Computed example of a mutant assay.
Amino acid sequence: MGKLKKKQPITKVSKQEGPGFKHSRAETAKLIRRYHLLNKQLAQCKSDKSSKTQITREKEKAIIKEMEMLGGLDWYQKASQLGQSKSRGGDSSKWLIQTLRSTLCADELKEAAKPIRILEVGAVAPDNYKQHERWIKVEPIDLNPQHESIRKQDFLTMAPPATEDSKFDIVSLSLVVNFVGDPEDRGTFCV
């Protein structure tokens, strides 16, 4: 029987994996995981009010520098776009559509008085639900949109819906909660 490979912790990503790195599945996943780890470390440094020492400030600068070497938020999002491409399995809307279809019967979907409203937080592509627009209405938002049809919006600072008609039926947070570095802010997503 073959040996199982032990997953190695992510400690460093080489400089060559920045903006010009090859777009293999493994390298894209490695970039995304490293960026998440750095983002959490940065949030931890910023939230540690008791020790705003020179060492903490230097650690923050080093983290920011490494994030920039990886290509920054812009490149992280390009890697996310690669990750949700059809050749790599597609985006999470496929799962949500299947779940809705298996939960709601076909007659309920056809006879719905109004479409299901989805707020897609951390949207990578604006048209993930396009073929279902007859029964789904999506509002895609992101901190750093990569498409003009995605609204620039921080979910954590978003005003609650003003009217009953403007409320969302579903909030999609695919790969968003793990991106937020501060544990309290991650909890806010779940409230």
Rank of each mutant, 00 (worst) to 15 (best):
Q81S: 15
V176D: 02
Y35A: 11
C105R: 13
A43Y: 01
E68T: 09
I97F: 01
K7L: 10
R134H: 14
L38V: 01
A43M: 06
R57N: 11
L156Y: 07
A112Y: 00
F189N: 02
A162T: 08
I136L: 02
G20D: 08
Q153I: 05
D142F: 03
F168Q: 02
A106Q: 14
H36V: 07
I55Q: 15
R25N: 12
K46H: 04
F189H: 07
S51A: 14
A125W: 04
K94S: 10
A112C: 08
C105F: 05
K65S: 12
H132R: 03
P183L: 03
T163G: 03
D107I: 11
G89Y: 07
S166Y: 06
I97E: 01
Q98T: 07
M67L: 01
Y129I: 00
D185I: 04
Y76W: 10
P161Q: 03
N144V: 14
P160H: 14
S85Q: 06
E164H: 06
H36W: 08
Y76S: 06
K46E: 12
P160C: 10
E120Y: 01
D91Q: 02
K61M: 12
T56I: 08
K114L: 00
L73R: 13
E60D: 04
D91P: 00
R88K: 08
R134L: 09
K110H: 05
P160F: 10
P9L: 04
E133L: 04
V124R: 13
R151H: 12
L38Y: 03
K94L: 13
W95M: 14
D169M: 00
G89Q: 04
L104T: 07
A106K: 15
Q77N: 15
E148W: 07
T188W: 11
R101W: 07
E164M: 08
K78C: 14
R25G: 10
T99A: 09
K3G: 04
G83C: 14
S102D: 13
D182V: 02
K22E: 13
R101F: 06
K59D: 13
K46D: 12
L173C: 01
S93T: 02
G2M: 07
K49N: 09
E164A: 12
F155K: 04
S174V: 03
Q146P: 11
K6M: 09
P19N: 15
L37P: 01
V177T: 08
C45H: 05
K7D: 13
E108K: 12
N39S: 07
L100Y: 03
K61L: 12
M69H: 11
L42C: 00
C190D: 00
K65T: 10
A26S: 13
I55R: 13
P160M: 10
D154I: 13
K114T: 06
V180R: 02
K59M: 08
H147S: 04
Q131G: 09
R151S: 10
V177A: 06
P126F: 02
L104W: 07
I136E: 00
R134M: 09
